Amino acid sequence: MDYKNIIVEIGGGILQITINRPSKLNALNKETIAELHDAFADAKDDDEAKVVILTGSGEKAFVAGADISEFSDFSPEEGKQLAAEGQQKLFNYVANFPKPVIAAINGFALGGGLELAMAAHFRIASDNAKMGLPEVSLGVIPGYGGTQRLPQLVGKGRAMEMIMTAGMVDANQALQYHLVNHVTEQAELLDFAEKLAEKIMKNSPVAITSAIRAINANYEAGVNGYDIEIEEFGRCFGTEDFEEGTSAFLNKRKAEFPGK
């Protein structure tokens, strides 16, 4: 599929989605959100795509925020609809994606950009990265899951401070806050992400999907994550991946998972 605002490349089981609006510092507009959804939807059904790496083009920004010009004159009802549609179409879709999603944060990840990175399953950052949720400086709050995912990652107190001050943290602070898993030099960012993806791809994709569901369940209101873990654990026993994994272990050989 041809896209206007993103670049999609695949090789060796790794699908890289690059947000490509450098003149706007890769800011998210409605069109880009729709294209990202389509790219993820295609990746979901693509057997060749095992892991997704999400990044931004250029050296300045992952995503510098949402395109404010699109909603500066919205009514309260339109604002509510904007957040609901965006969360359903992209942010929650990424968070619950059945294949691993790694956000490779190069440069600024602000507002909707940080919310998108937080929706990924985990994050790595270049050493020049800066992250923040500056929405209150515009008279609004994060609307794409930021008030929920940031406290889950950094704790309530730090999240309150970051959101209330509208300030940014650098890559090393983000690492200390557990907002990102790793920090690397910018030139090495994508290579590092690919090495992590390669480690992931050595394991059972079916089991990884189950793990994503079980981990996410802990953050869903009214859902007992332990019950979901038990259910997914049992489900694994009926898969070809389990048969292959246990057989390989018992026979002291490398597993070749069929992904079924």
Rank of each mutant, 00 (worst) to 15 (best):
T55L: 02
K50P: 11
I53S: 01
I6S: 10
N26Y: 02
D42N: 15
L36N: 08
A64E: 04
F40A: 05
A49H: 09
V8Q: 00
N20H: 15
D46I: 09
K44S: 14
D45A: 08
K30I: 11
E9K: 08
A61K: 12
I53V: 03
D42S: 15
T55M: 01
D42W: 14
L28T: 11
I33G: 05
T55E: 01
E31D: 15
K50D: 05
F62E: 02
A41N: 15
S23F: 08
D45E: 13
G58Y: 04
F62Q: 01
L25Y: 11
F62N: 09
A66Y: 04
E31S: 12
I19N: 07
K44Y: 10
D38K: 15
Q16C: 05
A41T: 15
I17S: 03
S23G: 07
G12M: 01
A66H: 13
D46T: 09
K60C: 10
P22C: 12
K50M: 03
E59Q: 14
G11Y: 01
I14Y: 03
T32W: 03
F40V: 09
K60A: 09
G65V: 04
A64N: 08
E31C: 06
G56R: 04
F62T: 05
E35S: 12
G11M: 00
A27Q: 08
G12A: 01
E35A: 05
N5P: 07
F62S: 02
S57A: 14
D45M: 12
K60R: 12
K30D: 15
N29F: 04
E31F: 06
I53K: 00
N26V: 09
E48D: 10
V51L: 02
N29P: 07
I53R: 00
V8L: 00
T55I: 04
L25H: 13
D38P: 15
E59L: 12
R21V: 07
E9P: 10
A43H: 11
K50R: 07
E9M: 01
I19S: 08
A27N: 14
G56P: 09
T32M: 02
G58V: 06
A61E: 04
N20D: 13
N26A: 04
L15G: 08
E35Y: 06
T18G: 10
K60F: 08
